[in-house]
Design a protein around this nucleic acid. Structure first.
Lengths: 149, 149
DNA sequence: ACAATAATGGACATGATTATCCATTAATCA
DNA sequence: TGATTAATGGATAATCATGTCCATTATTGT
């Protein structure tokens, strides 16, 4: 069946969105966020590790620790998160599964897919974590951005 | 990772495309098509069964049998095939995995996804099996349609 | 130095997708 | 009727994605 991204990526988006609603600098603890957003903790922790590896999060160990976003949430697009979790090449494979498919040797669906993909990625690129946070039911500071700009 | 559709669906598209290049009425035998397109036979046979169930193919048993398309290849869109194999609702699930997401209770990504999906489905809907067949290296009758219209 | 907290990393369990095998059914031909 | 051909359907295996558990490491505070 169709999958825009893996479960892990879905959890990353939900967790990071929640983090952005809660805290100015996107600081959170794994256990807390997983409990609040209803995503499985043990599994999601692996994803957080990947986001640390990818440079999106900084890990803070010890009491009062957790994770902080290394970049403000309004500068992280959904596409950024997706690529960080899934790898830069998630969207780059031939949809007909032909290994030799490319610009020089396009499969019958190549051009169609390139166009559809462009539009899809454009949508995912223009929405940021902050957008998602604002669109969620605001927990605190209900979107000061709308007034502030 | 990203998946536009399942392996089975990929095989269906490759097999049906090949069938359309070979034969006016899209007639083929499972063993033959699988051999030629390099897709696993035992597995693909299950998919052909599904396409029979879905009314896309008619199965002809016995010597000289095989499958025939019940509809001419230029009237079958990629989206038709995808929906037949994957089910009508493949593209209808919330990308954030929220069960209550819908028009009345949209998730933060709902509108973005609806738009991206529309564009994606439009691309998949306007290409037919005949298009794919013509775009493949033509085995016989190299696209009489181009001259015929 | 010790205790408590929180992330890390490895091993393992579960589930879904993908793939293979084989006996059965239906059709054709001699 | 018997032999051959080709799809069908059920059981089973392999592979990958998802999920859990636990010992370890780093950090903080006492």
């Amino acid at each position: 069946m169709f999958k825009l991204y893996s479960k892990g990526c879905e959890y990353a988006l939900r967790a990071l969105t929640y983090a952005a609603t809660q805290n100015e600098d996107g600081r959170f603890q794994a256990a807390d966020v997983c409990l609040q957003t209803g995503i499985p903790e043990s599994f999601s922790r692996k994803i957080f590790q990947a986001l640390v590896q990818g440079g999106f999060l900084r890990a803070l160990r010890g009491p009062g620790g957790g994770y902080v976003l290394t970049i403000p949430p309004d500068q992280i697009s959904l596409l950024d998160v997706i690529r960080a979790v899934e790898g830069d090449d998630t969207f780059d494979h031939c949809v007909l599964g032909l290994p030799e498919c490319g610009t020089k040797r396009p499969c019958p669906l190549h051009e169609t897919w390139v166009k559809a993909k462009e539009q899809l990625l454009a949508q995912l690129e223009k929405r940021t974590l902050q957008d998602l946070a604002d669109a969620s039911q605001p927990k605190r500071r209900p979107s000061h951005k709308l007034a502030g700009r």
